[in-house]
Each structure stands twice: as structure tokens, then as C-alpha cells.
């Protein structure tokens, strides 16, 4: 299927990705090519097959519910581009 430039703009917005006009054109072409290639999967009969979402059948290992040491707020905020006390600072939402 062809992925139009309009679809690319919509997807880019969903992905919170600012693209240049040139990128929109490139990705429209490339995604069309890739989706055309992956469409070969429609030939595989998967009736009744449970999707496999991880590589092994291991159960999830839960840990004991007890308090353990963790990183300090200062450590966790040490890479923040902007902060105010122990908060991440962002421009106005509206």
C-alpha cells in the first residue's frame, strides 16, 4: 500500500516528531517500499495462532514487595535540561 505524505504527517504527529518537508517525502517513499515488502506475511496462514510477544515462555519474576534503596531525586534529576527544585520544568502547556 502507498503511504501518502498526508499519512506521514499524521503518523509524525502521533510520534511527536517534527519532520522537514524533505523527510516527509523520503519517508513516504521508503515506508511504501518497506510495507510493500512486509506484505509477504499475508501469504502465511496464521489462523488460530496465538501471537508471540516475547522470546521465551518464562513467567514474569516478581520480587518481594519490600523497600530497597534507590537513586536520590538529585541523581535522577541530574540530566534534566531544566528543573525547579525536585521538579522537571517545561514550557507552558497552553
Amino acid at each position: 500500500m502507498a503511504v501518502s505524505e498526508e499519512t506521514i504527517r499524521k503518523i509524525a504527529h502521533l510520534a511527536r516528531l517534527e519532520l522537514t518537508e524533505k523527510e516527509v517525502q523520503t519517508y513516504s517513499k521508503q515506508l511504501t517500499g518497506i510495507l510493500d515488502y512486509v506484505s509477504q506475511l499475508s501469504k502465511v496462514d496464521t489462523t488460530g495462532v496465538e501471537p508471540l510477544v516475547t522470546a521465551t515462555d518464562m513467567a514474569v519474576n516478581f520480587r518481594e514487595d519490600k523497600v530497597e534503596p534507590s537513586l536520590s531525586p538529585d541523581d535522577l534529576l541530574s540530566n534534566a535540561p531544566d528543573r525547579s527544585g525536585n521538579l522537571f520544568k517545561v514550557p507552558p502547556v497552553l
Binding site: V3, T7, I11, A15, I34, V49
Partner: peptide, 24 residues
């Protein structure tokens, strides 16, 4: 872009789910 597209409403079953089935 490719992943967001394949997970988006209307395409999830045809792409992501199908791929996971073939993966099994």
C-alpha cells in the same frame, strides 16, 4: 515512523499482530 504506523488504529492487526503470529 514505521512502528507508529504499524501500531496505529486500523493497521495493528494486519501488521503487528500478524508479525507476532508468524514469529510464533
Amino acid at each position: 515512523m514505521l512502528g507508529t504506523f504499524a501500531l496505529s488504529s486500523g493497521y495493528y492487526d494486519a501488521y503487528y499482530k500478524k508479525a507476532c503470529q508468524v514469529r510464533r
